[in-house]
Amino acid sequence: MDVLIMGGSHFLGRRIAEEGLRRGWQVSVFNRGRTGTNPEGVTALKGDRTSEEDLKRLAARGRWDAVVDTSGMSADTVEAATRALGPVAGRYVYLSTVSVYAGWPLLPLFEGMPTLAEAEPVEGMPTDVNVPYGQDKAQCEEAARVNAREALTILRPGVILGPHEYVGRLPWWLRRIAKGGVVLAPGRPEQPIQPVDVRDIAKFACDQAGQADGNAVFNAVAPIGHSTMGDFLAACIEATGRSDVELEWVDGDFLLSRGAKQWTEIPLWRTYPGTWQVSGRRAQDAGLVCRSLTETVADTWEWLSAGNNAVEHERAAAIGLDAAKEAALLAEWRATRG
């Protein structure tokens, strides 16, 4: 099977390329070659997806059984890519996000609910939710449908973790736990969460690329209740070997009242009720298997401990709670409890 990956040098795109190679496929990657590293064994096709001439040259290299698009961030670039590559691709798999839903993260979600290309954000959408990002990705989905049509499959992941993660959510928690001491743990330990391992998404993306039919949409997330915040932090303690760490669970309302920023300053912690209530049943019925979060955490720590670092990412600077602010929050929390 011949597969083209739009991207292929970072995190998810790289994992999809590696998974394709593992299956014995002929894998080509198309990127600018400026950041990241292409996996050994791929055919590297250098170019800029925003250039019409580069896309024409790329299309002339085809035909591919499937194109997997991991880097489409604007409707015009996705429309241009599907227009150029549609005639030379049997399938087109577009990697989107659960942020496209008009109700995320306030409402429980399934694939039939309206996106931000079809509806306004639901009433009461908080100001700290990045609605423009969801709108852009929803418009990308619509642009892909214009040309790919029946050959299109859309995958909507939520939070993706694992080795080579560049946003830095899991790496921040692992490094914080590794420092030891008393660690501020947000909210409740029993809070369900459902992040998914990058390797599991990569396998599912390749499964869908190999399907004979398209025209499908999947929420590519772990099952609801797959893990909890307490399980996650316990896994970080186990992976780093810091059995001396003390988790101090701090009430969520208290944290919000003191200006703690959910999702960024305290990664994976979010109080909105729909955040971790995204149905992945359709994807799981189609073959998505999600490994334990403990395995994801352990493998990421092993990767970090080997001296690896992900590529720089624009969102990474906002991730993590400053040590002084954490200490101040803990001190005030203890004072309020006498």
Rank of each mutant, 00 (worst) to 15 (best):
Met1Ile: 11
Gly8Thr: 02
Gly20Ser: 02
Leu21Asp: 01
Arg23Gln: 13
Val29Leu: 12
Thr35Val: 13
Thr37Asn: 06
Thr37Arg: 15
Pro39Gln: 07
Glu40Ser: 10
Thr43Ile: 13
Leu45Asp: 13
Leu45Gly: 08
Lys46Tyr: 10
Gly47Leu: 05
Gly47Ser: 06
Glu53Leu: 10
Asp54His: 13
Leu55Gly: 12
Lys56Pro: 14
Leu58Gln: 08
Ala59Gly: 11
Gly62Phe: 08
Gly72Asn: 09
Glu79Cys: 09
Thr82Lys: 07
Leu85Thr: 01
Leu85Ile: 00
Gly86Arg: 15
Val88Phe: 06
Ser99Met: 08
Tyr101Gln: 15
Met113Leu: 15
Pro132Glu: 00
Gln135His: 10
Gln135Ser: 04
Asp136Val: 00
Ala138Lys: 08
Cys140Met: 06
Ala143Glu: 12
Ala144Met: 07
Arg145Trp: 09
Arg145His: 02
Asn147Trp: 08
Thr153Phe: 03
Arg156Val: 04
Ile160Pro: 01
Pro163Thr: 02
His164Val: 01
Leu174Ala: 11
Leu174Trp: 02
Val182Thr: 15
Val198Glu: 03
Arg199His: 13
Ala202Met: 02
Phe204Thr: 06
Gln211Leu: 12
Val217Gly: 08
Asn219Ile: 05
Asn219Gly: 11
Ala222Asp: 08
Ile224Tyr: 08
Ser227Asp: 05
Asp231Gly: 06
Asp231Arg: 15
Ala234His: 10
Ala235Glu: 09
Cys236Lys: 10
Cys236His: 10
Cys236Gly: 01
Ala239Thr: 06
Gly241Asn: 03
Gly241Tyr: 05
Asp244Met: 07
Val245Asp: 05
Leu247Gly: 07
Glu248Arg: 06
Val250Asp: 01
Phe254Tyr: 03
Phe254Asn: 04
Leu256Lys: 14
Arg258Gln: 14
Lys261Met: 01
Pro267Gly: 11
Thr271Arg: 14
Arg282Thr: 06
Arg291Gly: 14
Glu295Lys: 07
Asp299Glu: 15
Asp299Gln: 14
Leu304Val: 04
Gly307Phe: 04
Gly307Val: 02
Ala317Gly: 01
Ala318Pro: 02
Ala323Val: 13
Ala327His: 09
Ala328Val: 00
Trp333Ser: 08
Thr336Cys: 05
Arg337Lys: 11
